[in-house]
Structure formats: structure tokens, C-alpha cells
Design a protein around this nucleic acid. Structure first.
Length: 612
RNA sequence: GCCGGCGUGGCUCAAUGGUAGAGCAACAGUUUUGUAAACUGUAGGUUACGGGUUCGAUUCCUGUCGCCGGCUCCA
């Protein structure tokens, strides 16, 4: 897609936002308008309408929009001085607030809002705003727009939701109407089809269909229960992570899931977020809590004995559950849960080792995300902003952030810098993966921490006999196993590579005669003994139906077992991709050949079948 | 937590102010099957849970729990 096309799409979508606002103003004249920017595939507008809109109102608004489009009002651009604008938008509380902000502070204060919807230039000093009028509706806007309301292609209003004014939950909650817009009806149709396809990949749907995990009202929201099949995937993912880390010099440790609150008072977490700590009590005098993270615990293993510079880095890894009080409405399938299993690790390093430690982790991420999963991701450098919500010395922060950026640059990693996204104890790197519907999930993370070593008084003896502070490098490759599993389910649409597939081989006997069944189970025992996960379809059904069932279950290989197989001891595996493999390609396989191939495929964590 | 939507057998869905119906799955019988759905039958639901209105509620109102789309948050 070229730039001209991008610009044109932008103008069209932004014009649609104005047209929607025009329609809403016509239908509900007392509406107060927030902002209406362009987003991926479309646009939205935040509105304050009395009485509140419901989804039934969307068709009405759509119909009115079509009238506005038909009327073909030109989009007329002009400018207004700030005071003139204040007069013009009288009663439009939100617009007035924006104009006043521009007046009092210039654009520096309004950085939470896309400049194009305020009508202001990018300069810090602002004395006028851009105005666009289409027929009965006038809005603050920098443009650009299409010539007139009829030049907007195809659109559809998608959904209605709440949105806090300027993204702050202390503010009023407006209603956000999302729409999508495309140049042609055909493109719109294709997009809607794509959306339907994406919904089929939704891990919540596939998780249920494929029997991977369940929720129980009795256990509670955000607390997934993994079935035998789902547990296979979890374990395989975890084994992969542990194997990769083990090669990187990490040692496994283990900690209890509860702790005295004292630990978190020392780490600083408790002071930082006192409301997030739900404390439970035993009959003893101490207050206990479920652990919301692992780093403070791991520091206590490090601190348990004197450490020498020669032993650094000391690296601990552990796959363990953290418990967090995610609010109702914030949980989503496996992507956001209250009990999240992390492949967490903490390396205690000398300052001169930070760079090489980061390099080694970036390399692990590359192996995992790119080489094995072939999964697109983006890198965010989460840095601090100039607020006071961070602990520790600003100089350390600055040098830490600079070195993170330097390493990323050196490794040729593409990244965005996200100011204000750091943790209170240090900057972090986030590896972000999109789900089927385009929502971003943070998976892996690397964090640099000078604060906790200080607060816990961690030390090692340097080569001059001095006691000095180590630096902590926090890391998770998968992040939350639950979330990563969600990402995997959607990435593969349930058709897992062999090494991850809960059921790798489906044995489909052609009838239930004793000879065939005995041979089938004998075969299953051989496959199982070779470490493969095989199941027998023991239903008394047609072969066609068994094949269909195996296909729907997305089992990588299906073996049809009949007289031919029993007599020859050979097999013609059927691939999940559909077609039976024809004999002239590789010929029939003996059981031993089949097992050897599959063992190789598993060992390679191959994304493709070695038999295809 | 906030705004909007929703909750009917294991799954997908239908119906109604008068105690719910289909397909798939399950089970039983018949069929003994060669690469994506054999046939017949049986069983399975206090319509998420509690309260209210009503002669009568699964349907209307309300509370709780849970789910969905966003918002906020995510150490």
C-alpha cells in the first residue's frame, strides 16, 4: 500500500468519523462530542448522549449517516482564533476543555490526544485551531478530509463501548462508537470475512472445542483449569523454555506460593501498591499473602550466603504461579488471568555483565519466537517518564535506559520507546504478540533492576575485596504460560506442530475385529513406548467418519489400521493437511521408520511435518 | 471497577407470560466398514443462581455469579 493510498484512507476514515458525528448531532442534538480519531481499519467517536445509546441505536445512526453521505456536503476547512473557538463551541464541554488546554499550555499538555483531532499544529505555541464543516456539523480538526461527504466508500458501525474522557477513569465515561471504513464495498466485505475467520481461531473457542482448558464458576473467574490435553501443551512450552534457559546457564530453584507480607514491604511493592495486596492470615501473628511475583523470593536465595564476583552471573529460573487481583472485566480467556504461571528468571550480574546478559537473552528470544515459532512480534522499550513514581537513582535509570537502547541498536532490533511504561524498579523490554483479533499481548520481557538489590541489601565481593551491589536482570521468555498458550492456539489455529500437539497420532482401526483391534493396541503401545502421544479411535464407525473426526481434532497424523497394515506391518500415515500420502513419494513406512521420523520431528520442534 | 451486550441439555442453536425443541456428541441395537459424516432407537434441561411482580415466569423487574466487546489497569 503506497503513501498516497494511506493518506486517502486516512482522510476517508476521518471523514467518516465526522459524518457519524453529524448523524449523531442530527439525531440527538444535545450530544456533547469528545474526540473522533482514525484507528486501524476505521474510526471512532466518543460521545456523551442523553439518554445513553444502546446497540439498537447503531442502525439508526448508520441510516442517518447514509443520508449525510447522500446530501454530499462539502468538507470546508477554515481556522478560528482560540477565543473565537471558545465562543463557537460553547456548551461543548469537551471541546472547550481541549481549546482551553491549547490556550493555556499549548500542545505540550494535550499529548494524550492525537493532534489531528484537535485541529492544532504540532508546535508548542498555538494561537488558532483548524475547523472543518460538513453541512450542519462543525468540528475542531486539522484534517485532511475528503472533498465532500459522498466520497467515503463503504463503512459499517461495529460496536459500542464505554471510554473514559481522555483515558482517565476519574473522568466522565463517554460512549465510543467504533466503525470500519474501506474504499470499496468489496474491501469492506473482505475485511468482515477476515474477522469471521479470525474469530474461528479465538483461543477461547478452540480451547473448548479441543478440550484444552476449562473454567468453573465454583473455582472462580480468571482461574483456568487445564485438561490433560491442555497440560501437554503447557508442559511442552515450559520444557522448551527451561531447556533454552538451562543452556544459558540458569539453575532451577523453587519457592512456596505464599509468603510473609514483610517480604513485599522490604521490596517496595507493598508501599507502591498497598491496595493490591490481599492479605490472608494463619493463626500465627504473621500476615501472609499469595505471591504476586517471584523476584523478592529469589533475592533471598541469592542473599543466603556470601557471593564472589567470580561466580557471577548467578542465574535462577523457575516456572511458578503468581496471583494477582485482576479486576472483574479485565480478565480474558487465558490472556489475562488471576493465577498466571510464569517462566520467570532472575540473573544477578555485575554491572560489566549487563550487556552480554541482555545479548544472550535477546538470542533466546530469537530462537524461541522466530526460529521455532516463526511468530511475528514487536519490541517495546518501556522507559520511565518524568513523574515521581519510580524508585532509585535517576542517573542509574538514565544509564540503564541508554544501555538497553544501545544493545537493541547493536543487535539491529526494531523497537518503539514507550515512555512511562517502565516498572517502578527499572526499565523493561517487552516482546509483544498480536492475537487473532489484532489485540496486543505482552509475552516475553526483560527488566533491569537496581532497586531491589539495594532494598534487599544484596552484595558480592569484588576482585578488590570490596562488598558491592549486583544488578538484577528479570526475564521471562514465554511470560505467562497461559497467555502464551492463548497466543500459540491462535497462531496455529489449533493445528499444533507435532511437538506441541496433545495427540500426535490417531489410530483408526478399520473394523472392530479382534485381530485388527489387537494389532491397533499393540501399535499404540509401541508408539507410546517411543514417547509419542497416540490414541485409538475405538468407536464402531465408518473409516470416513474416523478420518473426519481426526481431522476436526487437528491430530497431526492418522493411521488407518486394516488387514493390509496388520499383514505387512507397514503403514501409510495420513497427514492432517488432508491428502493421504501416496506410495510413490516415500513408500510405505515400517513402524520403526515412522517412529524414527516422528521422534526427529519432535526433537527438532519442527514447524512442518517431516513426512510431507 | 466503568459503559454496552449476554447466560436455554456436554457442544452449536431454536421457542414461548401457560413447567422447553433440533442437530452434533453420549448410550443401545443393526451394519464390519479402506481415507472428511452408515441406519434406527434411548437417555439427557428446576432455561446460571437468589429474590420480586403475576393465577402462572424460562420469558417482565431486581440482586449475585459468570461470559463477550471496549475503557481503565496489568508490579
Amino acid at each position: 500500500m503506497d503513501h498516497a493510498h494511506d493518506d486517502q484512507l486516512f482522510a476517508m476514515r476521518h471523514s467518516l468519523a465526522h459524518i457519524m458525528a453529524t448523524a449523531i448531532q442530527e439525531l440527538y442534538p444535545s450530544t456533547k462530542f469528545g474526540i473522533g480519531p482514525v484507528v486501524e481499519n476505521g474510526f471512532y467517536y466518543d460521545v456523551d448522549v442523553e439518554p445513553r445509546l444502546t446497540e439498537e441505536d447503531l442502525p439508526k445512526i448508520e441510516a442517518k449517516m447514509k443520508e449525510v453521505i447522500k446530501a454530499n456536503y462539502p468538507f470546508e476547512h477554515s481556522t478560528m482564533g482560540l477565543d473565537e473557538a471558545l465562543g463557537f463551541f460553547k456548551g461543548q464541554t469537551y471541546k472547550i476543555e481541549l481549546i482551553n488546554d491549547l490556550k493555556n499550555h499549548g500542545t505540550t499538555v494535550a499529548k494524550d490526544i492525537d493532534r489531528s483531532v484537535i485541529g492544532a499544529s504540532d508546535e508548542a505555541k498555538v494561537d488558532e485551531v483548524g475547523i472543518y464543516t460538513d453541512g450542519p456539523f462543525t468540528d475542531l480538526c486539522r484534517g485532511p478530509h475528503v472533498e465532500s461527504t459522498s466520497k467515503v466508500g463503504a463503512f459499517k458501525l461495529m460496536r459500542l463501548s464505554g471510554a473514559y474522557w481522555r483515558g482517565d477513569e476519574k473522568n466522565a465515561q463517554l460512549q465510543r462508537i467504533y466503525g470500519v471504513g474501506f474504499t470499496t464495498k468489496d474491501e469492506l466485505f473482505k475485511y468482515l470475512e477476515l474477522l469471521k475467520e479470525a474469530e474461528k481461531r479465538d483461543h477461547r473457542k478452540l480451547g473448548k472445542e479441543m478440550d484444552l482448558f476449562v473454567f468453573s464458576d465454583l473455582v472462580g473467574a480468571g482461574l483456568p483449569l487445564f485438561t490433560p490435553r491442555g497440560t501437554v501443551i503447557r508442559d511442552e512450552l515450559n520444557n522448551f523454555s527451561q531447556e533454552l534457559q538451562g543452556k544459558g546457564g540458569y539453575q532451577r530453584v523453587a519457592i512456596p506460593h505464599m509468603t510473609k507480607v514483610e517480604l513485599y514491604k522490604t521490596s517496595g511493592h507493598y508501599d507502591k501498591y498497598p491496595e493490591r495486596f490481599s492479605v490472608t492470615s494463619f493463626e500465627s501473628d504473621d500476615e501472609f499473602m499469595m505471591k504476586p511475583m517471584n523476584c523478592p523470593h529469589h533475592t533471598q536465595i541469592y542473599a543466603s550466603r556470601p557471593r564472589s564476583y567470580r561466580d557471577m552471573p548467578i542465574r535462577y529460573m523457575e516456572t511458578t504461579v503468581v496471583y494477582r487481583d485482576e479486576k472483574a472485566g479485565e480478565m480474558m480467556g487465558l490472556s489475562r488471568v488471576r493465577a498466571a504461571t510464569q517462566d520467570d528468571s532472575h540473573a544477578f550480574v555485575r554491572p560489566d555483565q549487563i550487556e552480554s546478559e541482555f545479548e544472550s537473552i535477546f538470542n533466546m528470544i530469537k530462537i524461541m519466537y522466530t526460529d521455532v515459532f516463526d511468530m511475528p512480534y514487536r519490541v517495546r522499550l518501556a522507559f520511565r517518564d518524568d513523574t515521581d513514581k519510580y524508585f532509585g537513582d535517576i542517573k542509574l535509570w538514565n544509564s540503564a535506559q541508554a544501555s538497553i537502547q544501545k544493545i537493541a541498536d547493536k543487535l539491529g532490533v526494531k523497537y518503539t520507546i514507550e515512555e512511562g511504561e517502565a516498572t517502578f524498579y527499572g526499565p523493561k523490554i517487552e516482546f509483544v504478540v498480536k492475537d487473532a483479533l489484532g489485540r496486543e499481548n505482552q509475552c516475553g520481557t526483560i527488566q533491569l533492576d537496581f532497586v531491589q538489590p539495594e532494598r534487599f541489601g544484596l552484595e558480592y565481593t569484588d576482585d578488590k575485596g570490596q562488598m558491592v551491589r549486583p544488578v538484577m536482570v528479570h526475564k521471562a521468555l514465554l511470560g505467562s504460560l497461559e497467555r502464551f498458550m492463548a497466543v500459540m492456539i491462535e497462531h496455529y489455529a489449533g493445528a499444533f506442530p507435532l511437538w506441541l500437539a496433545p495427540e500426535q497420532i490417531r489410530l483408526a482401526p478399520i473394523n472392530d475385529s479382534k485381530e485388527i483391534m489387537d494389532y491397533t493396541y499393540e501399535l499404540k503401545a509401541k508408539l507410546t513406548a517411543a514417547g509419542l502421544r497416540a490414541e485409538v479411535d475405538s468407536s464402531v464407525e465408518s473409516v470416513g467418519k474416523k478420518i473426519r473426526a481426526a481431522g476436526l481434532a487437528k491430530v497431526p497424523y492418522t493411521l488407518i489400521i486394516g488387514e493390509q497394515e496388520r499383514e505387512s506391518g507397514k503403514m501409510k500415515p495420513r497427514l492432517r493437511t488432508g491428502h493421504a500420502r501416496s506410495d510413490d513419494e516415500i513408500g510405505e513406512l515400517s513402524v520403526e521408520e515412522f517412529v524414527a521420523k516422528l521422534a526427529q520431528e519432535v526433537a527438532d520442534r519442527s514447524p512442518k511435518s517431516l513426512l510431507s
